[in-house]
Design a protein around this nucleic acid. Structure first.
Length: 330
DNA sequence: GAGGCGTGGCC
DNA sequence: TGGCCAAGCCT
């Protein structure tokens, strides 16, 4: 039987073909690198509440840290507890979400806050299974909150960790298009046994993927485990598949985004006909709502496309009809 | 399980 | 310039 770096097999030598001493060395090097390199992020401070950690994790889903920081600070100042957020209309969460993107996350975070008040006496639960039951909380976020807010030993797997494992252990440029059982098993086997070390390991591997082992142009010269990297040893083979990008220009999605940008800034229900006409003709050009209205108009979308976008927003609960116009849910 | 879902910065 | 990418989740 032959062990290939590209096809990690558990055997006498351990996960990914690593001996126990090699695994321990990886733990030491990566957590050591993290101790001296980690960014100072407010949700990593020990005084940050589990609620603050949960809010950060939801905001960080598909959104870069630098854009999350100011919005997270505003949210925690305004709503320092789940009960604070749950006590306000869902539309306020969507409005305060600003331009973070994927505004349904704001809706789900609001629903999660309500569930926490209703089912957990207002305290963010620390168990993976209970976290997973919250709206907007999937396998990654449940594990991350349990680990980072409650110090639990959890197998945290996000896109950064997947990429580090793919290169460092499996020797390929990128992880597979979707998370699979083999990856979860590998991640579980790489996780340090000690609880405290496991928490630091999760954060450290994630940080390594975010700062050094990046998707494009990884900074291998700065990597603390470059001498152990299976991908580097294999001569940096290119990805075996081409990631498929998401279309944007001319899509319903783009129109959705433009419509909700208008609703975020509107302080009264917006009649449907306003979405179809020049804001200058409506006398709104110089007002706050005039800017997103002009942007929407420039898309020059077909009426039926606009209808689909609005219907989608209504269906998702991101908008509601009130007195002949559309607004964020009140 | 593939596809839908925002937004802005970067190379 | 424009496609790729960012601490995913849900259906």
């Amino acid at each position: 039987m032959t062990l290939s770096p590209a096809m990690p097999v558990d055997g006498p030598s351990g996960p990914g073909g690593l001996r126990p001493d090699q695994l321990a060395a990886l733990h030491r090097r990566i957590t050591g690198w993290f101790a001296e390199t980690a960014r100072d992020l407010p949700w990593r401070e020990t005084r940050c509440s589990p609620w603050g950690v949960l809010v950060s994790e939801i905001m960080l889903q598909q959104t870069p840290v630098v854009r999350v920081l100011p919005v997270w600070r505003e949210w925690l100042e305004r709503w320092p507890t789940p009960a604070g957020l749950a006590g306000e209309p869902a539309g306020e969460a969507v409005r305060s979400w600003g331009r973070l993107g994927y505004p349904r996350r704001a809706l789900r975070l609001h629903a999660a806050a309500a569930a926490i008040v209703r089912d957990h006496a207002g305290e963010v639960p620390g168990d993976y299974t209970e976290l997973l039951a919250l709206p907007g909380v999937g396998s990654y976020t449940a594990a991350a909150v349990a680990a980072f807010a409650f110090g639990r030993r959890e197998t945290v797997v996000d896109t950064n960790i997947r990429r580090v494992h793919a290169r460092l252990v499996s020797g390929v440029a990128l992880p597979s298009p979707s998370l699979n059982a083999a990856e979860m098993r590998l991640a579980a086997e790489l996780l340090p046994d000690d609880v405290g070390t496991s928490v630091r390991w999760n954060a450290a591997v994630m940080e390594l993927g975010a700062l050094v082992c990046t998707a494009r142009a990884p900074k291998c010269a700065e990597c603390p485990v470059r001498n152990s990297c299976a991908w580097l040893a294999a001569g940096e083979p290119p990805p075996s598949y081409a990631p498929k990008g998401q279309a944007w220009h001319g899509t319903d999605r783009q129109v959705r985004g433009a419509v909700i940008a208008v609703l975020r800034l509107a302080d009264a229900p917006v009649p449907a006909e306003m979405f179809q006409r020049e804001p200058a003709d409506l006398g709104f050009a110089a007002t706050g709502i005039g800017v997103p209205l002009s942007a929407l108009h420039r898309l020059n979308s077909a009426p039926e496309q606009l209808e689909r976008a609005i219907a989608g927003l209504l269906g998702d609960g991101l908008a509601e009809l009130h007195q002949g116009g559309y607004r964020l849910p009140a």
